[in-house]
Design a protein around this nucleic acid. Structure first.
Lengths: 199, 199
DNA sequence: TCAAAACATTGAACTAGGACAAGAATTTAG
DNA sequence: CTAAATTCTTGTCCTAGTTCAATGTTTTGA
């Protein structure tokens, strides 16, 4: 039986190879630089005020990032499950304090790079610049779409869109988090769902 | 007197060197691949349905990108003035039809790369991978912030925030475009401004 | 296994912002 | 210079979504 680390390397290697095709050597440099970590449920990987020092790939589990405004209201920025990356890229890259939280919602297993390690990776295997560019581009594209939906669509459409786009999430996260993601109140989401149910 | 092209190269070279420091040779490869173009006011650089084939740096003028929903309502995604880049990155990169419009609001002068040229640039001077990654990261960070504001802040705060962040824009673009950017109606923005005026 | 905590639903009262319409002001182009 | 087009303002009425509060349901953990 192979150790868990190598088994997880296969998963992450396959995931990144969808964006860019790497040589065996590049992958091996990458794998050597990754750190594996188990994180319990409801644990913070980052708190607002701290500098984000991980760019993490989720092997198992589910997490969220959120912003907390002055009045204490949460805005959920992202849910991440198996196969997704999670970080605060601005804070990570400029090594400045973040203003978001990253919290596990289930027990997670992650593979991550810290800031120095990522720079080392980019030096030793510069093709990863391209990979990370494509990753951020995809993220931007998703965020832009979400902005459009948030501005232009009524609550019910937003919710139906969410179900279509992320069908696995509702089973895994509390409903009021989804409301926060959609930018509506938990109560109103409940009413939207009640309306949908009787159709 | 030097030809305009070389004068504009200085401007763009200085702009990109804020992100990554390039060698003279890299800059010269870059400059040779750029195309200069004058574009009249109210001209489309991209229409929804077409594949986006420019990644443009604005040397002079002002443009906007917007999404047009099924009911004909516009959502403005970005204003761009001197020193900004404008494109639909998703469409450009995957060479698939875009669903946004890019339109000049003033007569513009731009320097741009098309898809092939950009790939050539990245081959000949791979350090540009890093530059474009940083550019997209910054864009993502701005978009995330805007999403948070859109969801969590009332109209007046959004407007004041906008004034603070982009003080030069209101002089240059019609007010109802700003309303669209903020995700509020033109009429309501007018009322917000009236309220502000009498304080 | 059961008490406490977290989550979801429902209803009633309220409000931020939208839609529409009409007029005033400003810009544009011939 | 002037007519047409675009933009901005203001008012009235309306609604999607909020807030608060009470109740029911599910999950958690000792």
């Amino acid at each position: 039986m192979q150790p868990y680390s190598s088994q997880y390397n296969d998963i992450i290697n396959q995931a990144i190879s969808k964006y860019v095709s790497f040589t065996t050597e590049e992958l091996s440099i990458f794998n050597d630089l990754l750190t594996y970590k188990k994180v319990p449920k409801k644990t913070f990987l980052l708190k607002a005020g701290d500098v984000c020092d991980i760019e993490a790939f989720i092997v198992k589990g589910c997490a969220r990032t959120y912003y907390l405004d002055d009045k204490g209201a949460e805005v959920i920025l992202q849910f991440a499950v198996e196969g997704w990356w999670i970080s605060d890229i601005a804070s990570f890259h400029e090594q400045v304090p973040s203003n978001i939280f990253i919290e596990t919602l289930e027990a997670c297993e992650i593979l991550y790079l810290d800031h120095n390690t990522k720079e080392t990776l980019l030096e030793k295997a510069p093709r990863f610049e391209r990979f990370f560019r494509l990753l951020v581009q995809r993220n931007l594209s998703v965020t832009q779409n979400r902005l459009i939906n948030t501005i232009a669509k009524p609550a019910m459409e937003k919710y139906l869109d969410f179900l279509k786009r992320y069908p696995s999430i509702p089973q895994r996260v509390p409903q009021h988090y989804i409301a926060s993601y959609l930018g509506i109140s938990a109560e109103f989401l409940s009413k939207v769902r009640a309306k949908l149910a009787k159709q």
